[in-house]
């Protein structure tokens, strides 16, 4: 099937078997290997990309379902957001092996947008806010991104720092 995706601001035409996931389209067809394949079942978050402004698991989405959509991957994230978050990850030691990091960065970027739009979380005392960027809120809102090196303290600190800087 012929589809078109706008990936990191550039229109990309693709001719794909409908079985190809958005993740495989990005990695195998567009050679954007920043997005990682961890579990391939929506359980780890390593494949997180931003589609139409929202973070999703690219492994649990068919590429053909995204015909016409705007996708941001880790490769385009710095240009889109200025790199504050990436710098905070470096400063706070928010990684060890780095495999989960692209997913963490995409997820955190969209998560901070959700927070600005006033979305509540499971740990918010009041569903109507206001929500503070507490350690508990960051942990809850980022629970879809696992880190097998367990760098959670650094990841949490980096996101908190970048969120406060905005």
């Amino acid at each position: 099937m012929k589809i078109e995706l706008t990936v990191n601001g550039t229109a990309r035409a693709l001719d794909l078997d409908p079985r190809v996931t958005l993740l495989d389209a990005l990695r195998e067809h567009l050679k954007l290997t920043g997005s990682k394949k961890g579990c391939d079942h929506g359980q780890c978050g390593a494949c997180t990309v931003i589609a139409g402004g929202r973070r999703i698991n690219a492994c649990l989405s068919l590429a053909v379902m995204h015909d016409g959509d705007e996708i941001t991957t880790v490769e385009g994230l710095a240009e889109a957001t200025g790199g504050t978050l990436q710098q905070a990850f470096v400063r706070n030691d928010g990684m060890q092996c780095g495999y989960c990091t692209p997913g963490q960065l995409c997820s955190a970027t969209a998560m901070l947008d959700e927070l600005r739009e006033g979305w509540p979380s499971h740990v918010s005392d009041d569903l109507n806010g206001p929500y503070e960027l507490t350690h508990e809120e960051v942990s809850e809102r980022m629970s879809g991104n696992l880190c097998r090196c367990s760098c959670y303290p650094g990841i949490n600190a980096a996101i908190t720092e970048a969120g406060a800087a905005k």
Binding site: G42, G45, I56, N57, A110, G144, N145
Partner: peptide, 14 residues
């Protein structure tokens, strides 16, 4: 509350 207690941010978006 029930929705927010389920899955992850990424999954709830889809």
């Amino acid at each position: 509350r029930a929705l927010l207690a389920g899955a992850s941010g990424q999954l709830r978006n889809k």
